[in-house]
Simulated scan of single mutants.
Amino acid sequence: MPISPNQGSTGGGTLVTITGTNLSGTTAVKFGTKPATSFTNVSPTQVTAVSPSGTGTVGLTVTTPGGTSNPISFFYVGAPFKSSLSATSGPLVGGNTITVNGVGLSTATSVSFGGVPATPTVVSDTQLSVTVPAGVTAGSVGVSVTTAGGTNNGFTYTYIDVPTVATVVPSSGPTSGGTAVTITGTRLDTTDSVTFDGVVAPFSVVNSTTLSAVTPPGTAGAVDVVVTNPAGSATATGAFTYVAGPGI
Rank of each mutant, 00 (worst) to 15 (best):
G11N: 15
T14Q: 14
L15H: 02
T19W: 00
G20P: 07
G25R: 05
T26I: 07
V29N: 06
T33V: 11
F39K: 14
T40Q: 12
V42C: 04
V42T: 13
V42S: 12
S43N: 13
P44S: 11
V50Q: 12
G56C: 06
L60C: 10
L60T: 10
V62W: 12
S69L: 04
F74D: 12
F75D: 12
Y76R: 13
P80W: 00
T88I: 07
T88K: 13
V93Y: 01
N96C: 01
T97K: 12
T97D: 09
G104K: 11
S106A: 15
S106E: 11
T109M: 11
T109R: 14
V111N: 08
G114E: 04
G115T: 05
V116H: 02
P117N: 09
P120V: 03
V123Y: 02
Q127V: 03
V130N: 09
T131N: 03
T131Q: 09
P133A: 02
A134D: 01
T137D: 05
A138L: 00
S140L: 07
G142Y: 00
G142I: 04
A148R: 02
G149N: 06
T151F: 07
G154A: 05
F155M: 14
T158Y: 00
D161W: 00
T167Y: 01
G173A: 10
G173C: 12
G177Q: 11
T179K: 14
V181G: 14
T182P: 04
T184C: 04
L188S: 05
T190H: 04
D192H: 04
D192W: 01
D192Q: 15
V194P: 13
G198A: 06
P202M: 02
V205Y: 01
S208T: 03
T209D: 01
T210P: 01
T215H: 08
T215I: 07
P216N: 04
P217S: 09
G218L: 09
T219G: 09
A220S: 15
A220T: 04
G221P: 10
D224M: 02
V225T: 11
T237I: 13
G238S: 14
A239M: 07
F240W: 10
G247R: 11
